[in-house]
Amino acid sequence: MAVCPICLDQRFAPLASIDFGRWEADETGDLHRATELFDLARCRTCGHVMIVTPYDDSTFRRIYLDTPQDPVFWDEMHVGSTAPYADMVEFCLGGAGPVEGFLVDVGCGPGLLLKLLHEERGHALDRLVGIDFNRRLPDPYRFVRADLNRLDADDIPGPVALAFASHLLEHLVDPRAFLRTLAGRLAKGGAIYVEVPDNGHFDPAIVGPTNLINQQHIHYFCEASLTSLAVSCGLAVERCERSVLGYVPRLRMLLRPAETTSAGDTVLRSLAHLSGQRTRLAERLRTLIGSGRPAGLWGIGADFHRLSVEHPDIAALVEGGRIALFDLGLAGRRYAGRTIRPPTDIAKFDGTVFLMPLLGDVRLKMRRFAESQGFPAGRVIDPWLTPR
């Protein structure tokens, strides 16, 4: 069953069918057409368009071995030209010289891009790598033979400074897995250049000459769907351009790993921040007690318990009667041998009382209660209030 590479849904709305066939002769020599249909559909969740007919190894052998594999035909003016590839390099590197790390062309074909990087941009041969199903890359360029539909991290020499995947993603069964694997081999500061036919562009004059809707193109990207695919792989779009060269509507992106903060990091930072706040409250209590002034805590719940565990000396001060405890629901109960007093007793307590709960809504109710009781100014302090 087909799976959308962007949202991973398996529900599709049918669009059309593409026929792929070949002539076969019977025993009399008469020709007849052997035809396969490939069904195009739109993902019902994210709208991505793709062929949903299953592909297997035999399918790939039929559709590729029966069709000559030539470089992308841009138009009559660019047959054998390196101009489109020079444009790709300029898109990624501008006028910069050779970079550190490997430059990898995945789906390198005859190597026009790598040849340009070496001969015109001065990149060392030992830093240039071509990866493809079959070798058409000439010596002395380094070549790695790999099944691009099952690309493994070990297939990619690294760390990769810049990876090119030009007119490749649309051919792969799972471009999401491919991009994730490639991203995992990037050096710090590394990038991925992707180019696909722009299926958000329609021009009757260029629909036919390059046959962009065919059984070899499994996926049909537009700017929105290619962006969504990149984001799903943890990549951010640094640069995007839509243009037309000859008969090919081009959608080009330079992708880099997105700068994100993991939930685990954020949780740990939050817990450390809260512990720090309790430490600052403990220091204020020590200062008050050390100067001989009475101190109290209002709200004997989970945050009070954490304060006592993290700062045993504060628990000892409570046990010794140096810090008074106030709580509405626990008034009259005893903690560490000390009776918990009702909040109304704060009016006659000659000292400073700190609100103990961290939850904002609880502290708001406590502050309003203090105002309604007319407690002396400065008697009750909310130690958790911070400027926003």
Rank of each mutant, 00 (worst) to 15 (best):
C92P: 08
A183I: 05
A163C: 03
F304K: 05
E76L: 14
C7S: 02
Q277V: 15
F143T: 02
Y85L: 12
L254Y: 08
E120A: 10
I213Y: 14
V3S: 11
M1H: 13
P257A: 00
D30Y: 07
V106M: 10
D126E: 14
G296D: 02
G337V: 01
G374P: 07
G107F: 02
V194K: 03
G337H: 00
A263M: 11
L40F: 05
L162H: 07
D203V: 02
L358Q: 15
A316W: 04
P84G: 12
T339W: 06
R280C: 07
A324R: 10
V106K: 05
R180H: 12
V89Y: 08
G320K: 00
P140N: 06
L182P: 05
A224D: 14
F60V: 09
G109E: 01
E36F: 09
L93N: 02
I51F: 04
D350G: 06
A183E: 03
M50W: 03
A86F: 04
F202W: 13
V267T: 11
R293V: 07
M77R: 14
F60L: 14
F221R: 10
G332A: 08
E371A: 15
F369P: 00
L251T: 01
E195W: 11
D30A: 14
I289F: 04
L15S: 07
H217K: 05
K115H: 15
R322W: 03
G321N: 00
F202T: 10
W298K: 11
P71T: 07
G321P: 00
D203F: 07
F375D: 03
